[in-house]
Design a protein around this nucleic acid. Structure first.
Lengths: 185, 185
DNA sequence: GCACTGTATTTCGCTGCCGAAATTTCGGCA
DNA sequence: TGCCGAAATTTCGGCAGCGAAATACAGTGC
C-alpha cells in the first residue's frame, strides 16, 4: 500500500530512524521498518498515517465497548441509541441504516434486541405503511445519557496530548483528505 | 463518539472555523453542526479528527475489500497474507494476533481457511512445541502480490492531495497521539 | 524429578453482520 | 382501475469475530 514512485523531496528523513523530537517511536515506526526491505518505494508518511488512523480507530472502538459496558450497553447498542437521540428520538430503520453505515438486515437485528430491552419502540408508520417508526423510550434515553460521558473521555485523553493548534491542524489536514474522498463518486 | 449520524446534506449552518481556506466543508463539518446543539461542550477539533479517521479507515477498508476481491481474496485474507509477507513469509500465530489486533481464536479461524486454500502451511514448531510455524506458500505469495497494487492505489490517491510536508506533519501528529495510547495502560 | 506459574494455540458456544431473496406497500401511468 | 417498477423492511443461511475454557508445553524453584 502506498508505494510512491519518484520523490526526492526536501525532507530527507532517514527512514530507519523516523521518530519525533524526543526520539520516541511508536508501534507503527517499527512496523514500517520491517516493511522497508520488502516493499521499498513505499511512501512512509502515507503508510504511517493510514496505519495509525486504523489502529487508533480500533482502539477507540474497544474502549467504547468496554467503558459503555459499565452501563449495561454494548458499543453497537450505544451507537444506535446515539444516532436515534441525535435525530430527536425517532427515526425510520432506513435512517439508521444510512447513519450507521449498516446493511438493512443488521438494523433489524439491532432494533430487535433494543426493543427487547425496552429502549426503543417499533410501531408501523401510519403515513407510509412500508415504514416503521422507531421511538426512543425514556429508558433508552436514560441509558444513552448515562453512558455518554464515558465515551468521550478516552478521545479527550489521547487527542489532549496535542496542543490546541496541533489539534486544529490535524482536523484541517484530515478534512482535506476527506474532501478528496467524498468528492469522488 | 464519532462515526454516525445524519447523512442528508444539511442546511449550511455556519460555524466559524469549520471550513478550510477554500471554504469547503466535508461531511464531518455538517455532522458536528447537527450535534452542537445537542451536546455543547464537545471539542470540535477532537470530535472532527476522530470522526474523520473513523470514516476514512472504513472507506479504505471497503475499497480494499472490493478491489482485492478481483483476485479471489477477502479483505481479511489479504490482510493476513500481507502481515505474513511482511514478516518474511513465516511467523507464529501470536505474531499475527498482535499485528492484526485480533483475538487468538480469530487467528486460528483465519489460518484454517488460508490453509484450506493452500496459501499457508501450518507445521508444529521444532524449537518450542507450543508454537506453530506459519509459512507463506508460493501460491499465497502470488495471490498477495497480485492484489497488492490495488490496495495502495486508493491510499495514494487520497493522501496524495496533501503536500509532502503536510503528509509528514500528519504522520507526526498521529505518532504523538499513538504514543499516548501505547504508553500508559 | 515434581509442583507451579506462565505462554501458545485450539475448541466451543454465542452474537452480530452481511448478501440475497421474499413480502408488503407506494407511486406513476395506461 | 389494473399493472409495474421502486422502496422499506424482514427473513434466511452462512461466516467471522469474540470470550472463556481447555490443552499442551516451557521455565523456574525446590
Amino acid at each position: 500500500m502506498a508505494e510512491h514512485p519518484p520523490e526526492q523531496p526536501t525532507a530527507p528523513r532517514d527512514r530507519t530512524g523516523s521518530r519525533d523530537r524526543t526520539g520516541a517511536r511508536d508501534w507503527t515506526d517499527g512496523h514500517l521498518d520491517r516493511w522497508q526491505p520488502v516493499l521499498p518505494g513505499l511512501d512512509p508518511d502515507i503508510e504511517a498515517s493510514v496505519t495509525r488512523m486504523s489502529r487508533l480507530t480500533r482502539h477507540l472502538g474497544r474502549v467504547r465497548e468496554q467503558g459503555v459496558a459499565d452501563y449495561g450497553l454494548h458499543k453497537h447498542e450505544f451507537d444506535t441509541l446515539h444516532v436515534l437521540a441525535g435525530r430527536g428520538g425517532h427515526a425510520a430503520p432506513s435512517d439508521l441504516r444510512a447513519d450507521l453505515n449498516l446493511a438493512p438486515a443488521s438494523v433489524t437485528g439491532r432494533l430487535e434486541t433494543l426493543e427487547r430491552r425496552g429502549f426503543v419502540l417499533r410501531t408501523p408508520s401510519t403515513e407510509d405503511r412500508r415504514k416503521v417508526d422507531i421511538v426512543l423510550t425514556e429508558a433508552g434515553r436514560a441509558a444513552w445519557q448515562e453512558a455518554l460521558d464515558v465515551v468521550g473521555r478516552e478521545e479527550r485523553r489521547l487527542l489532549g496530548v496535542l496542543s490546541e493548534e496541533e489539534r486544529r491542524t490535524l482536523a484541517d489536514l484530515l478534512r482535506k483528505v476527506m474532501l478528496a474522498q467524498e468528492g469522488e463518486r
